[in-house]
């Protein structure tokens, strides 16, 4: 072998590779070819209870745990007129700065209500700094069937404990009607 010139040995590798199946993914044309693993740490999501109320209680534990200081939370009081979560407290301001986030997942580990989880979405590049600070409306999970968007009241006759014990399965007709009425008020600008 040692008599074969080095250059031939080198080009042999090139030549043989031409007949192998390529490992490369044609991203973004074929992005579904290798989806992220289910536990991949992607963009965060703020989850909802099955009736659409928010799970976040604004406790700021995620912000406290964050080693990169990427999260800003401000809590506030739920009122009977404007209820965003079961119980007394909800997250009024929720921001994650994806220029700072290191996707370590400590925030979702500490979340006491499982309000914050991570999705598999990894396409987080953009043109401006502002657009990479995600606000609460950008982070809230989509409304699944049988959910109506907060603010609205809790399922009648239940307490916050019932929410945490998984006794709520969907938005009731009363809640749906309430949200519809609220939307009507806002659209017409009438009381």
């Amino acid at each position: 072998m040692s008599r074969v010139p080095q250059i031939v040995r080198g080009f042999w590798v090139t030549f043989s590779t031409m007949f192998k199946k390529p490992n490369t993914e044609n991203y973004p044309e074929q992005k579904d070819k290798y989806p992220p693993k289910p536990r991949f740490h992607g963009r965060h999501q703020l989850n909802r209870h099955p009736d659409g109320l928010e799970k976040c209680i604004g406790c700021e534990l995620c912000a406290w745990a964050c080693p990169a200081d990427a999260i800003l939370v401000e809590g506030a009081d739920n009122t009977e007129e404007e209820r965003f979560s079961p119980g007394e407290r909800y997250g009024r301001v929720y921001q994650i700065n994806y220029l700072r986030c290191i996707f370590c997942g400590l925030c979702i580990e500490v979340c006491p209500t499982r309000a914050l989880t991570m999705t598999n979405e990894f396409e987080l590049a953009d043109q401006t700094r502002e657009s990479l600070i995600f606000e609460k409306q950008d982070l809230l999970g989509p409304l699944m069937p049988n959910m109506v968007a907060a603010p609205h009241s809790m399922v009648e006759g239940t307490s916050e404990r019932d929410y945490y014990q998984g006794k709520i399965s969907r938005a009731t007709d009363a809640q749906i009607a309430e949200v519809a009425a609220r939307a009507g008020i806002n659209a017409n600008g009438q009381v």
């Binding site: 700021e60 912000a63 401000e74 809590g75 506030a76 009081d77 007394e88 407290r89």
Partner: peptide, 9 residues
């Protein structure tokens, strides 16, 4: 001060 911040803020 209700629900307005945490000591580390």
């Amino acid at each position: 001060y209700r629900f307005r911040s945490r000591p580390f803020d």
